[in-house]
Structure formats: structure tokens, C-alpha cells
Amino acid sequence: MAVETAPAKTTTGQKLHRIHVVVNGAAHDVDVEPRTLLVHFLRENLGMTGTHIGCDTTSCGACTVLLNGRAVKSCTLFAVQVDQASIATVEGLEKDGKLHPIQEGFHQEHGLQCGFCTPGMMMTAVGFLATNPAPTELQIREAISGNLCRCTGYVNIVKSIDYAARKLREPAEGKAPDVR
């Protein structure tokens, strides 16, 4: 799908840049102001409000998305930087009505309370598990050390990610042994 072309300049006379970006598998060609942060692009231009904003210092990770498969903080990226890139957000985790194992894990292990940090936590976990499919507890804790949660005390988030890791290993291994 393509989004309609916006004017080439903003009301303040700023030059706009056309970017082509694939978000959760759908292509978008959009004109953006250079200073538009990726998180605002996702939330305001594309209306995908699952990605949240929790700070202004690249500290909290509520805005985490996958950029070409790697978890990054979308508040510290300009949308122009992701031209030609592929972005994955929380909205793309569920496929064909089936929850992603990380979503299942957070629900089953009570890995969320207010839900505000949750999308960022889950995207961090998805990016991390792609590089480390059988992590230890400490490795999970390190992996989410750039994501702050104020509600859960992290214990159940760690369990949720471990749940997803096991589930993601299942097809290859039949069942997921405790590798730790």
C-alpha cells in the first residue's frame, strides 16, 4: 500500500524528504521532515500507536522497534534514516490471528501490568532471541537492560522471554529442553 503524497514543504518551509519504508511487511512512500523522529512517524503518520514514548534520553526503550531485524530505540532515529529499510513493530507480531510466542509468553507468565513498556520489551526480546535462541537468565536480563519497566520488577518479563525462547525452539527440537 502507498500513502498519499504530502506537500513537498512544511508550513515552516522545511524541505521534505521522500522515504520508502516497509513497516510490518507493508510498503509506505511518505514525505517527511528531516527532524521527524521515527517514533512520531510511526505513531502520527502511520497511526501505529503501539510503539510508545517514555523518555527523552534514549533510556527507557518503550519505543523499541526492529530496524532490519535489530532492536533499536525509535525515539533516537530520524525517519529519514530508515529510508529503504524494513521496520517491525508490535502491531506486526500477530500473524494470521496467531499470537507470536513472545506475546503468548507475556500473557502466560504475567510479564506485563500497565502494558506501556510491553511493546518495547517484546520487540527487544524478538530481536534478541533471533541472535540468541537459548539464552540464560542473565543473558535475558542483559538483553532487556535498555528497557525500563516500573510495574513488574522484571522477574516475570524474564520468564516471559524464556517462555518464548522455548516455544520458538520447539519446531527444531520437538520439545524445548531446559538448556540452562
Binding site: R43, T49, H52, V90, L93, H107, H110, G115, F116, P119
Partner: peptide
């Protein structure tokens, strides 16, 4: 009981104030 409210939060479908447009 597993939480009912999780369904929207794990899908990024929670509606927080900044999501109101």
C-alpha cells in the same frame, strides 16, 4: 486467572492518552 486486559496490550492496542487523536 490470566489477565483479560493483556489481550490488547500485547497487541499494541492499548489506548493511552497520547493515542487519542
Amino acid at each position: 486467572v490470566k489477565r483479560k486486559e493483556d489481550a490488547r496490550f500485547i497487541r499494541g492496542k492499548g489506548k493511552y492518552v497520547d493515542d487519542v487523536k
